[in-house]
Design a protein around this nucleic acid. Structure first.
Length: 618
RNA sequence: GGAGCGGUAGUUCAGUCGGUUAGAACGCCAGCCUGUCACGUUGGAGGUCGCGGGUUCGAGCCCCGUCCGCUCCGCCA
């Protein structure tokens, strides 16, 4: 820091070594303690706290003025560093051995009483957002924002060292036919036409590969006009990466190094690499999710061998019809409450369960001390099945086993959701500092969408089919084709994903056709990329990481709003600036745009009525 | 679009079976206090119980509607 008239040091930097020196500090009144004679003020700047002391015998005029100081006033003080009186050192403070005896006081700005106290947590998120600039003054927020900077910086440095070149791609670009809803921007100079804000710089970064850049990255703002969540904002930041002449393992290794560098910079931890790698099929079979949280067990077990010949008709017929019978053993959860049981069933129904209740077995000891298998289906099982089931699921006293019989997809969806909920009920991740990174690979290339009555890309239309599955694509067995696609997952959160791309024009055109995009539409929307691929496009691939989520997990926060300086609320509004806002007619006219929205008149009508008929009493 | 939880002092919250003047802590204001650091101490101010309607002798509490916030589902290639 270069000293200037405002300060010679930051508030955290004063030590016993400065005793006797004259220093100047600037900052905020963190707390003021008036003892009638002597007055203490904890002065805070972004680096820390120092106690400054006002004594009447040192400077009566300054001491008198110091009595007027209130929390969050902005001060500049000059004073002499002194060792604190013996017995009054404060070990909780980095600067607790010393204090500054003030000789000059300049009040740079007064602060009114704040709408909330900075030294207490507050639950009112509207208020935090309305006064976000005050919320950000709080230590937790300031720590998060600065930690995010370190993480971003580490990513930039790491990628730079690996030969990646940062390139800015346009924010004003074209709408995308698939995927999330776009934010649109009217194009004044092309009347009647629109830009869209990018959901990702996907096509541009692939074109940079055609351009021969070979290694690109960008800390890119992306936009998606979809509903929000604790881990989803309409504008968010991706670390976007693309490289040429690379294979899938190259990308995975690179990203492991990158994440290790980011977590080292952000949290000081060393992440072991390589990460666990798991196929999509395995993730779904074992965890019912393509972003499994492996900090706890509760794995899904396939029960086909146990029930293939079962006398219990529902299980046997499901298996004979090509379905699955699967189970989760919730160890030690026989004490589940009725409320919890209802909640699990609700979740299962929401996830697509066709019946009203999850089948279960509850294992408890009865009054005689015998193990009792409380279950609506126990009586249907042969002794041999019971034995096999107990052995396969390692069923013991106090366990609670859930079953689902149905299609593979249903079993994954339902048991996957139930698994997460049980873990939450049992507080299995409480206090855990585990960082369970893993890769999910071999995603399916395509999925059938009943709503759109067509095949859609699971990842995106530029994803490369696995070479060995190309015959399946040609044979029209779209559901069986696997992609050169991969997601990186941490503790049940998808941190990012990517793929090796298609670089051949004809394969890309074939892919568009499979997705139901006609040759004419391909020409209109994708001619630039199809054409580019005819001029010597190198094999390439890449990935994008969600920087906000990473920053959230590094900070140990539950919401990405805690690591974004000015986030939007649930309804995508900024309560501080009251954005979005209406614009006047002239502004719209210039853009050749007109709103079709009709404001609801109810409020007006209601207020008019109360004006005509005021309350009768009083 | 759907479900759940919440909305009481500036803030965080309590408020019993529907029953007297709606409480506490912190903060705020004023006084006292020369070694505190969550200073202490004395006193004081501060409430449209989100809003509207209903039930009732009586509503913060019950019912209906509505607004706002958060969480989740749908959605997010």
């Amino acid at each position: 820091m270069i000293p200037n008239p405002y300060r010679s040091l930051h508030c955290n930097a004063i030590t016993a070594a400065h005793v006797g020196q004259l220093v100047t500090l600037s900052g905020w009144v963190h707390s003021a303690r008036d003892h009638g004679g002597v007055i203490f003020v904890d002065l805070r700047d972004r680096e820390g706290l120092t106690q400054v002391v006002f004594r009447p015998e040192e400077n009566a005029e300054v001491a008198a003025r110091s009595q007027e100081l209130r929390d969050e006033d902005v001060l500049q003080i000059t004073g002499r560093v002194e060792r604190r009186l013996t017995g009054t050192e404060n070990p909780k403070l980095a600067t607790g051995e010393v204090e500054v005896v003030v000789t000059e006081l300049l009040v740079l700005n007064r602060a009114e009483v704040l709408p909330f106290q900075l030294d207490r947590e507050l639950s009112n998120e509207d208020l935090r957002m309305k006064y976000r600039y005050l919320d950000l003054r709080r230590e937790r927020m300031s720590r998060n924002i600065r930690q995010r900077h370190r993480i971003t910086n580490a990513a930039r440095n790491f990628l730079d060292e690996q030969g990646f070149v940062e390139v800015e791609t346009p924010v004003l670009s074209n709408p995308t036919p698939e995927g999330a809803r776009d934010f649109l921007v009217p194009a004044r100079l092309s009347p009647g036409k629109f830009f869209a804000l990018p959901q990702a710089p996907q096509q541009y970064k692939q074109l940079l590969m055609v351009a021969g850049l070979e290694r690109y990255f960008q800390i890119a703002r992306c936009f998606r006009d979809e509903d929000l969540r604790a881990d989803r904002q309409p504008e968010f930041t991706q670390i976007d990466i693309e490289a040429s002449f690379v294979t899938q393992p190259d990308i995975l290794n690179l990203v492991e190094g990158l994440l290790a560098a980011m977590f080292k910079a952000g949290r000081g931890v060393d992440i072991p690499t390589p990460f666990l790698r798991m196929t999509y099929q395995e993730a779904m079979d074992r965890f019912g999710s393509d972003k499994p949280d492996t900090r706890y067990g509760l794995e899904i077990t396939d029960m086909a061998d146990v029930f293939a010949q079962s006398g219990f008709k529902i299980f046997r017929s499901t298996l004979e019809g090509g379905g699955v019978v699967r189970a989760i053993n919730a160890k030690g959860f026989a004490g589940i409450t009725t409320g919890q049981m209802i909640r699990l069933n609700d979740i299962a129904i929401q996830a697509g369960m066709k019946v009203k209740q999850l089948a279960f077995i509850k294992v408890e000891r009865d009054a005689q001390g015998n193990l009792e298998y409380k279950s609506p289906l126990w009586k249907f099982f042969e002794p041999s099945e019971r034995e096999a089931l107990i052995a396969k699921l390692n069923v013991e006293e106090n366990d609670l086993v859930f079953f689902y019989a149905g299609s593979w997809q249903e079993a994954c969806d339902i048991l996957g959701r139930v698994r997460c909920e049980i873990a939450q009920m049992q507080a299995l991740t409480e206090g855990s500092t585990a960082l369970n990174f893993l890769w999910v690979v071999d995603f399916p290339l395509l999925a059938y969408s009943p709503e759109e009555q067509s095949w859609v890309a699971v990842h995106h239309p530029f994803t490369r089919p696995k070479a060995e599955d190309l015959p399946l694509l040609e044979a029209g067995e779209y559901g069986k084709v696997r992609a050169e696609a991969y997601d990186v997952v941490l503790n049940g959160y998808e941190l990012g994903g990517g793929s090796i791309r298609i670089h051949e024009s004809d394969l890309q055109a074939r892919m568009f056709s499979v997705l139901g995009i006609s040759p004419e539409e391909q020409q209109v929307k994708f001619s630039h990329i199809l054409e580019a691929f005819r001029f010597g496009a190198p094999p390439h691939g890449g990935l994008a990481l969600g920087l906000d989520r990473i920053a959230m997990l590094v900070a140990g926060e539950q919401s990405i709003r805690e690591v974004i300086a000015f986030p939007k609320n649930n309804k995508a509004c900024d309560l501080m600036t009251d954005s979005p806002t209406t614009v006047d007619f002239r502004q719209l006219r210039e853009l050749y745009v007109q709103s079709t929205y009709k404001e609801k008149r109810r409020e007006e009508a209601a207020s008019a009525e109360t004006a005509v008929n005021p309350p009768a009493d009083s």
